[in-house]
Design a protein around this nucleic acid. Structure first.
Lengths: 269, 269
DNA sequence: ATCTCCGTTCCACTCAGTGGCATTGATCGT
DNA sequence: ACGATCAATGCCACTGAGTGGAACGGAGAT
């Protein structure tokens, strides 16, 4: 021990040791690596992981390797990392994800055939809706949300349905930070929104239309498990001129069919 | 005797504590917890996790909690754990999973409309095919494979296509442990299989039919990225009497369309 | 009322995880 | 062609995050 001076030094100023939070749980770090990926970054080199996670190089490398070993990540020929298949394998067991999707799919198909518009299936996760399934025609308007992506509760048909049936605390929280001007044309204030949500609960469906910037119309309905609303379906037409109301019966019928199908399965398991 | 006796005790015989492998990587354990779930066990109580992973109670609890924190797991009202939505969020970024699926979906839809039979989209993962997407009609024969599940390469149409274009080492490995009697009716020996694979490569498609135990016919074709076969599509009809050959042109056309669509996207990113 | 099984809390020990540094390899600028 | 630059990987001594045994409270079962 040549070093005489106590390790407590460093306090002065010397090394900044800025964000490098040392004592961080391994699992959190591992998931930080996984979350470094997003729609715009589906393949990342080690440097990318380092940059986006803030982890030290060696640590990021070690984690990336272990994740690759387990199949959570895969490695491209050029050395970059991508999310691996095994993760899909595991994720497909999520009851609220593919579990729901599996029973809903045939009915969504039917609805798609009939309407030839976008079909959306979503569940609520905290203050957002997570898109579980989406059916689209070829010519479809492009920038709809991604499967697995999160959609705002106040700006989508499924979101309105899910929000309308969310716990009071969630509703309050969302209403507090509601920003007018980004929702449907008849939802311009928090008060509007409150009224709309009440209507959604009363009527058992939501409709909305928006002139811009991405003009579209939607009709959405709740999927129930017993009395709880656990998901929502919607039809989305890429045009503000369209009257979404004509889809309401079809969407509601589909939602009810899915609700029933889930209960039938419940009997078995 | 509180502290006195040495910890080495317990050696006697009493508790065997056999498999309890102590020095095991955290991430491996975390994934062991996640993999404790499967199609028959979509919701597990802590005890179930302990039993299926072999981890000590406290460890399993700690891991389950941390995973719940990050959203990889969710907790049911009755305390049981299930795979969480966040995992779907991450998994949906897998290029070979939902990435592929996203571009393929509209074409699969078309094929589904035309044929009204099961449509299957799969990629190879090691010695198995992973089911990436499946479209089925209501009345569909039930026990087809699950999305995210693994299918044998030698007993499915997509499997034959993927195997035919797999690296030589994989083919050898699979051929070595090929068990006759579980594949299609014209694949009864490893030599049969070799010949079939060659035909698949030459013709650019695979067909197969099986009388039992789950009678079905299938026609499958490869999806290519440049020259590499990266996935396979197939039509599966729940009847051995049907002639799958009539679907071959449609399936091949679909496969080519998807291949082209993937290349188009490649240009952008 | 007693037993059992399950989820949970607590805590002292220690080994898995850490991250700085050195090395190799690929890419680029001149 | 030849250093200069930056990414990826190998190495290793230190330490606190992770560990798991023990004990607790509560819900059912007997």
């Amino acid at each position: 021990m040549p070093a005489s001076d106590p390790p407590k030094a460093g306090s002065g100023s010397g090394a900044p040791a800025p964000s490098a939070k040392a004592g961080e749980a391994v699992i959190d770090r591992a998931f930080a690596v996984l979350r470094a990926f997003d729609a715009e970054h589906r393949a990342l080199p080690l440097a990318g992981l380092v940059q986006r996670t803030g982890l030290p190089r060696s640590t990021a490398l070690r984690l990336a390797r272990k994740l690759t070993e387990t199949g959570a990540l895969e490695r491209l020929d050029d050395g970059r990392y991508v999310i691996g298949l095994r993760l899909l394998e595991i994720a497909s067991l999520a009851p609220r994800g593919h579990g729901l999707r599996a029973v809903a799919m045939p009915y969504l198909e039917d609805l798609f055939h009939v309407t030839h518009q976008h079909i959306v299936l979503a569940v609520r996760d905290g203050d957002a809706a997570t898109l579980v399934e989406r059916l689209s025609a070829h010519n479809a308007s492009p920038a709809l949300f991604r499967v697995g992506g999160r959609m705002p509760l106040t700006r989508t048909g499924v979101g309105l349905v899910l929000l309308a049936h969310a716990p009071a605390e969630v509703q309050e929280h969302v209403l507090e930070r509601f920003e007018p001007g980004h929702s449907y044309d008849d939802v311009r204030t928090a008060e509007n929104l409150r009224r709309v949500l009440a209507e959604v609960r009363r009527g058992g469906y939501a409709i909305g239309s928006q002139a811009g910037p991405q003009p579209h119309t939607t009709a959405a309905a709740p999927i129930r498990d017993a009395d709880d609303v656990v998901a929502a379906v919607s039809v989305v037409a890429p045009s503000a001129d369209f009257d979404a109301a004509i889809y309401v019966p079809a969407v509601r019928a589909t939602a009810r069919a899915i609700s029933r199908a889930m209960n039938d399965i419940r009997q078995v398991g």
